[in-house]
Design a protein around this nucleic acid. Structure first.
Length: 479
RNA sequence: GGCCUCAUCGUCUAUCGGUUAGGACGCCAGGUUCUCAUCCUGGCAAUUGGAGUUCGAUUCUCCAUGAGGUCACCA
C-alpha cells in the first residue's frame, strides 16, 4: 500500500482566486485524511507569462488558509527541486529516452507553416491534428526546434475518480509538443515527468484538462508508466454568466477575502462545499470534519456558481461560533483609528456586542464608530425615523429631558438601565418604539445599535449624558 | 465545425427505481415588551423536453435542447 501523495501545481502567472484554490484544498484534504503528503510545485515553464510576486502570493494563500504543504519550492523535500525551471535536465533525459524509442521527433515546420495547417483545418471545420502533417523524415533534434511526441492514435476508456468512466476515440490523439524551442518543456510533458518522479498518486485538476487526458494516457504508455488516480474537478462559475470564474471578471483572490475579514475556516468550508458534500444535510464543517469526511466520489460533476451571499452568511455563522477571546485576537487589524486610544477591555466588550451582527471583520469600523467617538447630531436620523418623524421637536425634547433626569440617577449598570428605561415608558406614556428610538439616536447618533441598555452601559454615564445634552441643545435650536 | 463533459427551487445541494422531491443561502410574513442583527416559526420556489426500459422513473437507455470545456512553442 503506497502512501497518498497529492500536489498543487500552479503556474506563477497571476493571483490565485477561489476557483483555483479548490483544487489545492481537495488535494490537501485527501493527503491529510490518508496520512500522506501534500506537495507544492511551481510550473514556471512559460517565462513570458510569469508575473512577479505570484510565487509569494501563492504561498501566502496556502499558508493563510492553513493548507500547509509537506514539500515545496521554499521548503524542499526528498524529490526536489520543486520548481520546473530547475528541473530541465530531468525533462531532457526523458525526452532523450523517447527519441531513442522513436517516440519523439523534431518539428521541422516554422510556426507560420503550422499556423497554415491550423487555418486549413479550421476552414474545413475540422479539429486540427498536427499528426496529419507528421514529417516523413524529421531532422535530428538539436534543441532549436520544438520536440514533438510521436503519438500512437487509439481509443481509450479510463476511470476518473470524479467524472466516472470516460472514453474517447483515436481522433483526439495528437503529436503534441514535449519541449519548446526555448528549451522549456510544455505543461503536457513536464507535469507527467514530475508527477512520476515525485511519486504523486492522485492528480486533481480542472476540467479544462479533460480534453488532453487521452494524450497523456498515450504518453504514459510510451513511457511505460502507470497513470496516477485521475480526478477532474468541475469549474467554479462566476456569479453572473456561465463563464469560468476568473480574475478578469472581477473575481476576488483569496487574500482579498481575508483582508475583508472572512475567516480562513469560512473560506475552506465554503470552497469545499462548492461542489462537494458528505451526503447529509450538514452545511457547516470544521476543517477537521472536512478532513475526516472528504471523499472524491462525492465531488459534484457539474460546475458550481460562486454565491457571495452564501459566503457572507457562512462567515457570520463562523464568527458567532468563535469564542470572544479568539474573535478579539483576530480582530486586531480591523479597528478604526479612533479606537487606538481605547483599552483592550473596552474594545473587547464592544466586540462582544458586535459579534452577533458581523458578517465580516471589515464591518467593525462602521458598526462600532459611535463607541469610540462622539458623532455629530444628525437631524436626519429623526426626520427619517418612522416612529419619530411625526412628532414635533418640542415633544421629543420633552421626553428626552424626562429620560435624562431619570438616567442621571442611574449607576449605568445594564440591569439598572433596563429598569429605568422600562419605567420611563410609563412616565412618558410612550411606546418602546418611540422612546427607545429617541434615546438610541441621542446616545449613538446612529440608525442602529446593539440592545439599548447594553450599549448605554458600555458607553458609560458621562458620555451618554453629554450626548443627550447635545441632542437637547439641537432640539432647542431647532425649535 | 470535430471531440469531450455536464443538467433538481434564483443559488449551493440531498435522492444512488418507490419520498407529500428534503436541507441551506437569499427573498417574503410573523414572533423574540426598541432599531440593525441574532435566534425561532411559517411561506414562495425545482427534477430542461421527448421517447423507451420497468408494476413504478429525478434516478437506467436513446434523441433533442441548453450550458461548459477543448482543438497553443498557455497552463
Amino acid at each position: 500500500m503506497t502512501t497518498v501523495r497529492t500536489r498543487f501545481a500552479p503556474s506563477p502567472t497571476g493571483l490565485l482566486h477561489v476557483g483555483g484554490i479548490r483544487t489545492a484544498l481537495f488535494g490537501w484534504l485527501l493527503a491529510r485524511q490518508q496520512g500522506g503528503q501534500f506537495v507544492l510545485r511551481f510550473e514556471d515553464t512559460d517565462k513570458a507569462r510569469e508575473v512577479a510576486g505570484a510565487r509569494e502570493h501563492l504561498i501566502e494563500c496556502l499558508r493563510t488558509l492553513g493548507l500547509l504543504y509537506d514539500e515545496g519550492p521554499d521548503i524542499g523535500g526528498p524529490f526536489g527541486p520543486y520548481t520546473q525551471s530547475q528541473r530541465l535536465d530531468h525533462y531532457q533525459q526523458w525526452a532523450q529516452k523517447l527519441i531513442a524509442k522513436g517516440r519523439a521527433y523534431a518539428d521541422p515546420y516554422s510556426a507560420e507553416q503550422v499556423q497554415t495547417f491550423r487555418d486549413q483545418a479550421r476552414a474545413d471545420k475540422q479539429a486540427f491534428l498536427y499528426r496529419n502533417h507528421r514529417p516523413q523524415q524529421p531532422p535530428i533534434w538539436d534543441g532549436t526546434t520544438p520536440l514533438r511526441f510521436k503519438s500512437d492514435p487509439k481509443g481509450y476508456a479510463w476511470h476518473d475518480a470524479v467524472m466516472g468512466d470516460l472514453q474517447t476515440g483515436p481522433e483526439v490523439i495528437d503529436d503534441f509538443i514535449l519541449i519548446k524551442s526555448d528549451g522549456y518543456p510544455t505543461y503536457n510533458f513536464a507535469h507527467i515527468i514530475d508527477d512520476l518522479e515525485m511519486e504523486i498518486t492522485h492528480i486533481m485538476r480542472g476540467q479544462e484538462f479533460l480534453a488532453s487526458l487521452p494524450n497523456y494516457l498515450n504518453l504514459y504508455e510510451a513511457l511505460e508508466i502507470r497513470p496516477p488516480v485521475l480526478a477532474t474537478m468541475p469549474h467554479i462559475l462566476a456569479e453572473n454568466g456561465n463563464k469560468k470564474l476568473s480574475k478578469r471578471d472581477g473575481a476576488k483572490d483569496v487574500l482579498d477575502y481575508i483582508r475583508d475579514g472572512y475567516l480562513p475556516e469560512t473560506l475552506v468550508n465554503f470552497i469545499a462545499s462548492l461542489g462537494w458534500n458528505d451526503g447529509t444535510e450538514q452545511e457547516l464543517f470544521t476543517v477537521e470534519e472536512l478532513i475526516a469526511k472528504f471523499s472524491l466520489d462525492h465531488v459534484q460533476r457539474s460546475g458550481a456558481r460562486f454565491d457571495e451571499k452564501r459566503l457572507e452568511w457562512m462567515n457570520g455563522a463562523k464568527i458567532r461560533e468563535l469564542p470572544l477571546a479568539e474573535l478579539y485576537a483576530r480582530s486586531q487589524s480591523y479597528w478604526p483609528a479612533t479606537a487606538t486610544a481605547a483599552d483592550d477591555s473596552y474594545k473587547r466588550q464592544v466586540l462582544g456586542l458586535l459579534q452577533e451582527r458581523l458578517k465580516f471583520l471589515a464591518e467593525i469600523p462602521q458598526l462600532s464608530a459611535f463607541f469610540f467617538t462622539d458623532l455629530a447630531v444628525s437631524p436626519e436620523l429623526i426626520s427619517t425615523n418612522k416612529q419619530l418623524q411625526k412628532y414635533a421637536a418640542s415633544e421629543l425634547a420633552g421626553w428626552l429631558q424626562t429620560s435624562r433626569d431619570s438616567l442621571a440617577g442611574s449607576d449605568f449598570s445594564s440591569p439598572d438601565l433596563t429598569d429605568r428605561l422600562n419605567a420611563l415608558l410609563e412616565t412618558t406614556g410612550q411606546k418602546p418604539g418611540v422612546l427607545f428610538s429617541l434615546i438610541r439616536i441621542a446616545t449613538t447618533q446612529s440608525p442602529a445599535s446593539p440592545a439599548l441598555a447594553d450599549t448605554m452601559a458600555l458607553l458609560g454615564k458621562d458620555r451618554c449624558l453629554a450626548r443627550i445634552a447635545a441632542q437637547l441643545a439641537a432640539f432647542a435650536t431647532d425649535a
